[in-house]
Amino acid sequence: MAYSDKVLDHYENPRNVGTLDKNDPSVGTGMVGAPACGDVMKLQIKVNEAGVIEDAKFKTYGCGSAIASSSLVTEWIKGKTLDQVMEIKNSDIAEELALPPVKIHCSVLAEDAIRAAVADLKAKQGNTQEAA
C-alpha cells in the first residue's frame, strides 16, 4: 500500500504524542475505536479560561493513516475554540493526508475523537458549574 508523503511524515514524526492528566478539570479526553477493529485513538485537549485549546495530546493504536490522522488533528485544534474544532470534518483530514478510500475510516475516527474529547470536557465543566 502506498502512503502519501504527509502520512509518512506524521507517521515517522508524530506531533504531540503523550498524555495529559485526565482528572484535570480543564482537560477533555476522547477515546474512540476498539482493538478488535484495529484502531483505538485517544485524544486529549486542555482549554484555557478563554475556552481556547492550548494543548492537545494523542496516542493511537492503528495503522499509519490512523496515526497520521490523529497527529494532524492535534496540530489543527491547538489555538482553536471548542466551537471551531467542532467544525473540522473528516473530509478535511482525508484531503490533507490524501487518504485512499480504504483509509477514510481513519479520518472519521479522528473526527469522532475530537467530538468525544469536547463532549468529555463539556460534561466535566457542566458538572463543575453545577457544583459551583
Binding site: M31, G33, K42, Y61
Partner: peptide, 24 residues
C-alpha cells in the same frame, strides 16, 4: 508502544478485555 493508548492502559493495569469500547 509509546504511541499506543492500549500499552499505556496495560501499564496502568487496566484489563483491556473488560473495557467497553465505543463501536464505530
Amino acid at each position: 508502544r509509546e504511541l499506543s493508548p492500549l500499552w499505556e492502559m496495560h501499564l496502568e493495569g487496566v484489563d483491556l478485555s473488560k473495557v467497553e469500547w465505543a463501536a464505530h
